[in-house]
Design a protein around this nucleic acid. Sequence first.
DNA 1: AATCGCTATAGGCATAATACATATAGAGGG
DNA 2: CCCTCTATATGTATTATGCCTATAGCGATT
Lengths: 133, 133
Amino acid sequence: MCDHHHHSGDKKRSGCHCGGGLPVEKFMQPCLLILLKERFAHGYDLIQMLPEFGFTERLDPGSVYRNLRRLEEDGLVTSHWDVGEGGPARRLYSLTDEGEEMLHAWAVHIRQQRKRMDDFLDRYQSLFDIKNQ
Amino acid sequence: MCDHHHHSGDKKRSGCHCGGGLPVEKFMQPCLLILLKERFAHGYDLIQMLPEFGFTERLDPGSVYRNLRRLEEDGLVTSHWDVGEGGPARRLYSLTDEGEEMLHAWAVHIRQQRKRMDDFLDRYQSLFDIKNQ
DNA sequence: AATCGCTATAGGCATAATACATATAGAGGG
DNA sequence: CCCTCTATATGTATTATGCCTATAGCGATT
């Protein structure tokens, strides 16, 4: 499973970390990538936007920042400190070319997993619809 | 997220264990439930059938047996030793009423998560299609 | 000036799920 | 006797998450 995006650098962590055996593990990562493809953003902004992807309102900020630093470790995003107008310093994130490639790989993967759910739901329907006849 | 199936007994484990924050965590469990709704089966049979749900051919048997015992702990399936014609003893599993309820809850949940993936893919498409015009 | 709340980032810790390897054991074939 | 298939189960390392807490600047209110 998941033999895509084994391009340049799969360092450190072993195996594929874009979905594993579960339909969609780590769904937050592709959502962050797509948001950063649309525009540059700070972590805090991303936290505000993630509910658009079905994440609950009371999303754990810690998870978001952890995911962002993880994406940066993997070279999928870059950041630099933005000590602008006022307020605390913040990191401005942007997508790398490798991150965009990964986003395409994710899209393929998510399409596969959606199909998997379609199949499940079809089977579920046919199992319980027969009784209503 | 996930406020269904809080019916009778949520003992031991805290929180909801039908999906968590991820789109579809523990996808194997609903697959086992649907298979056991269709017919009684041994663990070994279920391992043979799981590829129909998109699990890889070289599926880890340990995970399946662990999931089955977990489902039994939660009262969603029952089993009894089947010391039939020959070969090693095996457990015959069947779905409980509570397990069937859980299967319905899973179907609702999986429909929601499929929608989430639809939304993701729509957004992905619109992001990359504009460039081709 | 002291406190409160919001912006903004980050680490600690317990829990949970998985992957991979390994253990056990009966039965049948070569 | 060994090998393979059937059949179930455990051990362990890794990984991801959720919840809690820490830090810190800044503006508004009391």
